[in-house]
């Protein structure tokens, strides 16, 4: 798979080959007339010797998983797109859990393309992250590209124990270069100790509620993204709110977390803003 995101380098090609032996092909996903249903499952646990083990690493269909070289206590997992997905009608799920004290970094090898299905039915992409006490998870996938005619609903949920740390990046690209976007609806819900920390819904593209691209919407921008950092250390020293130019802001949430939100003309400039934020607030 090779594709070009507006203004960005070909994302599939810049990913280094993962180290280690090639694991067996993932099992065939369940295919229904409506589309593919597939779930990737990851469990990370502290191995008691200062590192993180992955007792569960199970990809399925378009969601193949590779273990990557970790750093220090952190285990790395790469989501490798084994097919162009999700197509309309597909339902993909990624479930990752980090046990007490575990350190996990999740990335994806290439951008995810939302593509139209034959029947025009929506596709679903669910991500569920569960973080136990003292765990730390970095969820840093490549951009999601909403291709013309597609209809995708993304649901991301992260449930954190009060002492867990989370670094989460979301980037949405509306249409390939010069292309009209599809319909993209996404919701991000983060709870900490069962209390809601962040709940955000976004709808854009043809068919979204009125005004999505207007002066109270995207105002013509074609990429948007956010970086969320949840860290109990922010309780003692919360980050201060800041404005990063006209179209990005740093907003401390009501709990120990900071959200950096940015709109940009293209994926490259969006990544620059989020990378800078990551160096300041992340790890």
């Amino acid at each position: 798979m090779s594709l070009t995101v507006a203004g960005a380098p070909p994302v599939a090609l810049r990913t280094p080959a993962p180290p280690g032996p090639v694991p067996p092909a993932p099992p065939e996903p369940a295919t229904t007339p409506a589309g593919v249903r597939a779930t990737a499952r990851i469990a990370a646990v502290a191995d008691g010797r200062g590192a993180t083990a992955l007792p569960l690493l199970a990809g399925e269909g378009p969601l193949a998983l590779r273990r990557t070289r970790g750093t220090g206590a952190e285990a790395g997992v790469m989501l490798v797109g084994a097919m162009s997905a999700p197509l309309g009608g597909d339902h993909l799920t990624v479930e990752a859990s980090a046990g007490p004290g575990a350190r996990l970094a999740l990335a994806s090898a290439a951008a995810t393309l939302a593509l139209p299905g034959r029947g025009g039915e929506p596709a679903r992409y669910d991500v569920r992250l569960t973080l136990a006490e003292d765990s730390a998870v970095r969820w840093m996938p490549e951009p999601l590209v909403s291709v013309r005619g597609s209809d995708l609903r993304v649901r991301t949920r992260a449930e954190l124990a009060p002492t867990a740390r989370l670094l989460l990046r979301e980037e949405q690209v509306l249409g390939r270069s010069g292309e009209e976007p599809g319909l993209l609806r996404s919701r991000l819900t983060v709870t900490r100790g069962g209390i809601p920390l962040l709940d955000q819904e976004l709808a854009c593209g043809p068919g979204a509620p009125g005004g999505w691209d207007g002066p109270a919407g995207l105002a013509g921008h074609r990429t948007l993204g956010q970086l969320l950092v949840v860290d109990p250390a922010f309780t003692a020293s919360p980050p201060t709110a800041a404005v990063l130019g006209e179209f990005a802001a740093v907003t401390p949430l009501a709990g120990p977390a900071v959200l950096v939100t940015a709109l940009a003309p293209d994926a490259l400039r969006l990544r620059e803003v989020l990378d800078a934020a990551c160096r300041t607030y992340g790890w």
Partner: peptide, 15 residues
């Protein structure tokens, strides 16, 4: 309950 949001309204409010 819905959580519909507008990133630009949030950014502009901070500015």
């Amino acid at each position: 309950l819905p959580a519909a949001s507008s990133p630009l309204l949030d950014i502009a409010a901070q500015a």
